[in-house]
């Protein structure tokens, strides 16, 4: 008697597990079908452009976007990811994609993003100038030199002859922005668009004038379709909708 009662609850989880697996398989298959849509244009863009690019693409039908760090996108393209348009955060990564042949179109600049000295909300560290980045009593964050914003920051600090005392060299600018927004860091060098989006105070620093990176766009194929070319033209048009959206979000002109 006891043993008969025992088998009930043992079987039921197995059955629900099987049902769950079946659902998962069906979902995977349908997701796979969705991905093989032939007419869809795929845009790969640097993650700092997420909001801007999504706003621009909202007006275009049948376009999907993939966002990641520029280097990741270039690596994915090299490994055979299928995309029609690539937008990188700097010239160097675009050059890498062109050099290994994964991008065949000619690149052009669509926007720029200037480096700014941002502080935590309320500026608790009382930062007033770029030289404050060398104060050891503060928690200072910069981007690591290997990523574009880090290279830019190092160059600017070196030219201004400031020996910064960073407590962390973040692996991407988003991580740096998040730590400033949470108040865990007192100050850091980030992009104006990120400071604007996160609502972080910006301390004007003359030494940072003209320090900016440039976003590059290119068609993956040497002969892009008309729709792909039209999309790229929308991004590059100097006074188009895209340019306005970029300007609204803190990006500078090309």
């Amino acid at each position: 008697m006891v043993s008969v009662r025992d088998t009930g609850p043992k079987l039921r989880p197995l059955r629900s597990l099987a049902a769950l697996l079946a659902v998962a398989v069906v979902m995977l298959i349908s997701a796979g079908c969705g991905a093989s849509n032939e007419d869809e244009i795929v845009v790969m863009a640097a993650s700092s452009l997420t909001d801007a690019v999504e706003t621009v693409l909202a007006d275009h039908g049948n376009v999907s976007a993939v966002f990641a760090g520029s280097s990741t996108l270039v690596a994915q393209l090299a490994e055979g990811a299928s995309a029609d348009v690539l937008i990188t955060a700097d010239q160097a990564t675009m050059n890498r994609a062109t050099a290994d042949g994964s991008v065949q179109g000619v690149s052009s600049v669509i926007a720029s993003n200037s480096l700014v000295l941002a502080t935590a909300l309320g500026n608790p560290g009382a930062i007033t100038e770029l030289a404050d980045l060398s104060r050891s009593d503060l928690l200072i964050g910069l981007c690591a030199e290997a990523v574009p914003c880090g290279a830019l920051s190092q160059q600017a600090l070196a030219d201004a002859q400031i020996e910064a005392a960073p407590d962390t060299l973040e692996l991407n600018v988003r991580a740096l922005v998040a730590k400033l927004a949470l108040g865990e860091l007192d100050a850091g060098l980030i992009y104006r668009s990120d400071a604007l989006a996160a609502g972080l105070p910006v301390v004007e620093a003359p030494q940072l004038a003209g320090r900016s990176n440039r976003y590059h766009i290119a068609a993956v194929s040497a002969q892009p379709s008309l729709r792909v070319q039209a999309l790229i033209d929308d991004f590059t048009a100097a006074d188009g909708d895209a340019a306005m959206i970029f300007a609204d979000q803190g990006f500078g002109p090309p």
Binding site: S71, G141, T168, L171, K179
Partner: peptide, 21 residues
């Protein structure tokens, strides 16, 4: 913990950075 060489930058973080370069 962030990422600072010799203090908090572990091998996985170094790998990620190397991936950029």
């Amino acid at each position: 913990a962030g990422s600072f060489g010799g203090r908090t930058r572990t091998l996985p973080l170094e790998t990620y950075l190397a991936l950029e370069r």
